[in-house]
């Protein structure tokens, strides 16, 4: 938006803004990254717990084999929508599709900024700042203080069930949610069939080593099958921004 301002001053101001947010965006993200690694390393190195590096490496490999592609693809997918400054915010704060993007759009319309302009970019980044502050505050108060207190009041019979069944309680809903978001019954069916064959038929027969990487096998087979069976006449484009609210 340089129509009614001096365009030289505007370019200089934007360059300043871009330099500051890029430099500090990277530095703060790096700091958060190191801090998030410090906690697990403390448990491994400075407590009486004995966990071997072999076990840790296997653990990481099992997770990386499943999510490795997503690490890269999500950043590339969201970048055109977010821009550089907001990318450094978004991949630290999380909840991009279900919170940050809606917040940015609401703010842009609140000040009447046209998408694609510098004014819209600033509005989006400020909206994400507002969303970050609300999110941090609600996590601290409702999870950090209230939640921890609430859990301490719960009888053992409840916390035991929460511990044992939290994952099945999450995963059923996540599959349905993602299936609805992707809007491809074909991919959903492929994923479920491949998962059933691998987890229920192959894992019991092929043993522990296969079991460790069974989900990675399902991921690769599902991607390959979905790609080979894709609708070659369909035009893929703007509708596929991100992969639901499962991003980091």
């Amino acid at each position: 938006m340089t129509t009614d301002t001096d365009s030289g001053a505007a370019d200089a101001a934007y360059a300043r803004y871009d330099a500051t947010t890029s430099r500090w965006g990277r530095l703060t993200m790096l700091a958060a990254l190191l801090l998030s690694w410090l906690g697990p390393l403390y448990l491994v190195l400075f407590t009486d717990l004995v966990v071997s590096w072999g076990q840790l490496l296997t653990a990481f490999a099992a997770v990386a084999a499943v999510f490795g592609v997503i690490w890269v693809v999500e950043v590339v997918t969201y970048y055109p929508v977010l821009g550089p400054a907001a990318t450094y915010q978004a991949f630290m704060i999380g909840n991009i599709a279900n919170k940050l993007l809606p917040s940015a759009i609401v703010a842009q319309s609140a000040i009447g900024a046209k998408p694609g302009t510098r004014r819209a970019e600033l509005a989006a980044v400020m909206a994400i700042c507002g969303a970050a502050i609300v999110h941090i505050a609600s996590l601290l108060v409702f999870v950090g203080l209230l939640g921890t207190f609430l859990v301490s009041l719960m009888p053992d019979s409840v916390t035991q069930v929460a511990r044992l069944y939290i994952f099945p309680a999450i995963i059923g809903a996540v599959v349905v949610q993602l299936g609805a978001y992707v809007r491809s019954t074909k991919i959903l069916v492929i994923a479920l069939v491949v998962a059933a064959v691998v987890q229920l038929l192959l894992v019991p027969v092929l043993g522990k080593m296969f079991g460790n990487f069974a989900t990675a096998v399902v991921v690769i087979a599902t991607v390959a099958a979905a790609w080979m069976l894709r609708d070659r006449n369909r035009r893929y484009g703007d509708e596929a921004v991100g992969s639901g609210d499962l991003e980091s």
Binding site: V73, I190, T215, V218, G244
Partner: peptide
């Protein structure tokens, strides 16, 4: 990404 996440 859709197929990878749904598969996982």
């Amino acid at each position: 990404p859709s197929a990878a996440l749904l598969g996982a």
